[in-house]
Amino acid sequence: MGAFTTMTSKGQITIPSEVRDALKLEPGTRFYVAARNGQVVAIPKNKNLMDLAGIVKLPPGLSLSLEDMEESVADAAAEDDNRILRETAERLK
């Protein structure tokens, strides 16, 4: 799922309703926003940690810093977004 949106002169974007509905985002949702590999990644901060279970794949016994975990989650979100964009582009052909 993905959709196009436009940034305003104040740097604001509207998250399309299909995306809000799919992620169950509500007014007041806070986001962690980061630049990763030339992309803007916005991660809802009100998600339960269990919603992210399995997104970070580590060998047994290895631990990560909070920064490493944030980067891993952002990378996974960016990969998912790339997949969605590819699938959307294929459907529009």
Rank of each mutant, 00 (worst) to 15 (best):
66 L>A: 12
66 L>R: 08
46 N>V: 02
55 I>T: 11
61 G>A: 07
74 A>F: 05
75 D>F: 06
57 K>L: 07
50 M>T: 11
62 L>I: 14
46 N>T: 08
57 K>H: 06
81 D>H: 13
76 A>H: 07
38 G>I: 04
70 E>C: 01
35 A>G: 05
37 N>K: 12
84 I>R: 15
49 L>W: 08
78 A>H: 05
46 N>K: 05
55 I>F: 12
69 M>P: 00
84 I>D: 07
64 L>A: 09
37 N>L: 09
44 P>R: 12
51 D>L: 04
77 A>E: 04
63 S>M: 11
83 R>L: 14
80 D>T: 15
44 P>W: 10
80 D>K: 14
66 L>W: 06
42 A>Q: 04
67 E>S: 13
78 A>Y: 01
42 A>Y: 07
43 I>V: 15
37 N>T: 02
82 N>I: 03
48 N>A: 14
56 V>Q: 04
37 N>D: 14
38 G>M: 02
35 A>N: 08
52 L>I: 05
42 A>G: 11
78 A>E: 09
73 V>F: 08
55 I>K: 11
63 S>H: 12
50 M>L: 14
62 L>D: 11
76 A>T: 04
69 M>C: 06
56 V>A: 03
65 S>P: 00
63 S>C: 01
40 V>S: 06
75 D>E: 11
55 I>P: 00
71 E>V: 02
78 A>G: 05
45 K>T: 06
82 N>Q: 06
44 P>D: 09
58 L>T: 15
51 D>M: 11
57 K>Q: 13
81 D>R: 12
59 P>A: 08
82 N>H: 03
50 M>I: 08
37 N>G: 01
50 M>K: 07
45 K>F: 08
80 D>R: 15
67 E>P: 00
53 A>W: 06
75 D>G: 08
83 R>M: 09
43 I>N: 01
36 R>D: 10
56 V>T: 13
46 N>Y: 05
57 K>D: 10
39 Q>R: 15
79 E>A: 12
45 K>Q: 15
66 L>I: 11
68 D>H: 12
42 A>S: 06
48 N>H: 10
39 Q>V: 02
62 L>Y: 08
58 L>E: 04
43 I>M: 13
72 S>K: 12
56 V>H: 01
72 S>Q: 13
56 V>N: 02
72 S>N: 07
63 S>T: 15
79 E>T: 12
83 R>A: 11
55 I>M: 14
55 I>Q: 10
75 D>R: 06
79 E>I: 04
35 A>R: 10
78 A>Q: 10
53 A>Q: 13
83 R>C: 04
74 A>V: 06
50 M>Y: 09
59 P>V: 04
59 P>W: 01
76 A>D: 07
51 D>P: 02
76 A>G: 07
57 K>G: 02
71 E>R: 10
61 G>R: 05
45 K>P: 00
40 V>M: 12
76 A>V: 02
